[in-house]
Design a protein around this nucleic acid. Sequence first.
DNA 1: TATAGTTGGACAACCTGGTTGACTACTTTG
DNA 2: CAAAGTAGTCAACCAGGTTGTCCAACTATA
Lengths: 149, 149
Amino acid sequence: MDPVPMLLAMTYRAMGDQFHDRLRQVGLEPLRPAHGYVFRFLKAKRATTVDIGQHLGVTKQAAAKIVNELDEWGYVLREPHPTDKRAQYVTLTTKGRDYLKFADNLWSDLEQEMAEAIGQETLNTIKTGLAAYLQHVHGEDQPGLRPVW
Amino acid sequence: MDPVPMLLAMTYRAMGDQFHDRLRQVGLEPLRPAHGYVFRFLKAKRATTVDIGQHLGVTKQAAAKIVNELDEWGYVLREPHPTDKRAQYVTLTTKGRDYLKFADNLWSDLEQEMAEAIGQETLNTIKTGLAAYLQHVHGEDQPGLRPVW
DNA sequence: TATAGTTGGACAACCTGGTTGACTACTTTG
DNA sequence: CAAAGTAGTCAACCAGGTTGTCCAACTATA
C-alpha cells in the first residue's frame, strides 16, 4: 500500500482533474484552485489581501496577484476599510457568488460519484477522519491550504 | 464541512510539513517529494527518464532535471540500456536505497502518530477508501502523482 | 529491405506562480 | 509624541515546470 500522502496527492489530483474538465466545458476564465479557496474564504468572512495570503499560506504579494486577477475578471471588488485607511476589504461580486455556487454543485456531484464508488459510509469516515487529524495537528487555527510540491 | 479536496490538500500539506521538518534535522540535500516518488518508483521497477516523467505526470524534460539532480547528489546513476542504444536505465545507488529506507521509517512514524490521533481503524478505512476510489477512476494504470495547484 | 514514422534523450527559450526586499502611508503602542 | 509595526504596491528574482527543436536509434510496413 502506498504511503498516505501519496494517496492524498493522487486523489487530490484525480478529483481536481475531473473538476477542471467539467469546468472547461462551460468556458469560464482559467480559474485555479487558489481562486476557489479565496471565494470560499470571502464568503465566510470579510478579509483583506493580507488575510487571504495568510489563509492560502502564501505571501501577501502572491495573494495580491490573485486578487488582482479576480478583480480584472469581475469576481471580486475592493472597498475601503471603514476604520483603517491603509486597508481594503475584498468582497465577492454577484459573479463571484454565482461561480462559487456553480463550483459547489460541481464538487458535490463529484463527491456523490465518489460515494457511489466507495460507499457513503466510507466517504464519511474519510472526511471526519481527515478533519480530526487536522484538528489534532493544528488545533483551532487553520493552516495554509497550498500543497507543497 | 470542507469539500473533500480541501481536506486532502490540507492533510497532504500537514504531513509533508512534518516530514520536511524532521528531514531537515538530519541535514540531507533539499530533497523534494518528487525525489522520494522517484526513489520509490525505481525500487519497484527498472525505468528510464521517460518512464519517470510519465509516472510523475510531468514532461520528460522536467523528469530529466530531477534525475540530473539525483545523479549529482549521488542517489542514482545511469546505466546503458541492454538492447536500446538510445535509452538509459536510471538505478538507485546505495545512498539512494538508504535514503528511501530512512524516509519510509519516517513516514511510518508519522502514520503511526496519525493512527494514534484518529484511530487505527479510521486510518485503515481512509487508506483503503482512497485506494478504491483511485482504482475506480483510473482502472489499472496509475495516474501521474503531481498535485496541480 | 528501404523507408517512413516513432521514440529516448538533450538543449534552449520561455512562462507561471511563487519569493525576497524596499518603500510609503497609515496605525498602534509605550 | 516618538518608535515600532502593518497594509499595500513595485520591482527583481527564482524554481520548477512548459513547448519547440533536433539527432540518433529503434520499429513497423509496403
